[in-house]
Nucleic acid binder design. Sequence first.
DNA 1: GAATGTTATTCTATATATTGAATGAAAAGC
DNA 2: GCTTTTCATTCAATATATAGAATAACATTC
Lengths: 255, 255
Amino acid sequence: MKSGVDTAKASKAPAIARAAAVLRLLGKHGAPLGVQAIARELGLVPSTCLYVLRALVAEDLVAFDADTKRYSLDAGVLTLARAWLRKDQFNDLAQPALDRIAREFGTTAMGVQVFGLDHIIVTAMSQSGQNFQLSTQVGSRFPALVSATGRCIAAFGGYPQSELKPRFDQLRWDEPPSWEDWLAQVDDARVSGVAVDAGHYLSGVTVVAAPVWKGGRPSHALVAIGIGAALRNELPRLKEALKAAASALSGQIAA
Amino acid sequence: MKSGVDTAKASKAPAIARAAAVLRLLGKHGAPLGVQAIARELGLVPSTCLYVLRALVAEDLVAFDADTKRYSLDAGVLTLARAWLRKDQFNDLAQPALDRIAREFGTTAMGVQVFGLDHIIVTAMSQSGQNFQLSTQVGSRFPALVSATGRCIAAFGGYPQSELKPRFDQLRWDEPPSWEDWLAQVDDARVSGVAVDAGHYLSGVTVVAAPVWKGGRPSHALVAIGIGAALRNELPRLKEALKAAASALSGQIAA
DNA sequence: GAATGTTATTCTATATATTGAATGAAAAGC
DNA sequence: GCTTTTCATTCAATATATAGAATAACATTC
């Protein structure tokens, strides 16, 4: 995955694109990496990569182990994340609604932020506290078009099918829907205002998502995720609850 | 505070230093900022600043509001922080000890990471759940030499006084100790293995810190913070508990 | 223990990112 | 309602960060 680096050529500040790619790679890989390994993975020249790493180390964003000559993420990234969390209004506003939904329906409820057709990032979460729960972590990234959120984005984002199809073809599902089925489900979502993924993304798991609007586009979404069998009877109510909460948020954010 | 940018001249990748400075500024400031404001604050040329911002927007690290032309931090920083949290062994190991200390003594307990003489970052925390508690947030940065942690770093870091003095002179305290008093307290810490700040940093608040060693230097510290009056009787036990926990961690991390 | 394949790192010419002035657009002031 | 100031943005010249080969240190293999 060299997605971070190919943006370097287009940009006027390639060093920054490279730095971001390095940070993401270190984050994804977990274990510390050497200069060469990083350069190879990202398609960079080792010497350039070394300068990027040194700059990141100077900023406390990357830690350098002088003995093993390995690099890994450092605590500086935390400082930035904390600052972001403190001032994001969607999070503050969404949390109470997520807590309520998680408690009432025994699901895991999440708030996600939409980044065009590229991906979504989980920015808030509430766990039901019940026995079995499906969990992700705040900060997780997913492809934009997958699962219920994907149908929301496709339904309300106003993208032409020609843009959706190639992205759709690259998605990974437990039980992949056909393109036609998927389009039909997207239409459903457009009509009802809520999207449902019934076991396609994860077998046996039902995901519901409702869009939160900002400036004529879905900028965020509220998502509930639970065991399909356990949810069946409550599904209509859950859909309405998510839709109502998302709609309320849309109004508050615009203000 | 242009500390982020002056490193740019020394580095071979100044764009990265600038980018980091921009991110930190946006984090500190909270409210969205325009290009010019950012450039002025950091001593950058507006056009350069614009390219830096665009690159950061392309990486989802900065959000751009097309209407107001303002920039702010974006959710991408979360993804990096999550990755870091997942794989930092100090955090995983320290959390149980912090929970225990917070519960037993009714204090707030924190794990911090030391960045030389520059600063420390809070990376883990446990609150006692009692009525009154002093709280910080994970990700917070403090000057290295302040409070109890500062005495630890001074005592065990092996820095000459000539390096310590200028930094000491710039610290902010509620009740500043004299240089001589402070040195004496540092010596106390060196002998006893634990440092105490009794109301100097924050009036009425006692802070205790014990160093966690890695490769011959204190790389982290365990810190407990509580109301001085409430803590008085327990202080000797708290010091021993922190020291023991920090010592145990030092062993585990080395392994 | 020598040899081979790695690795991190330094060095310099050159492609290119940065600069600062110029442009256009939008507030602010009168 | 016009002028003035402030802002974001573009552009072309130049200072400079980058690429690639060369070196040096290291680990691995025979």
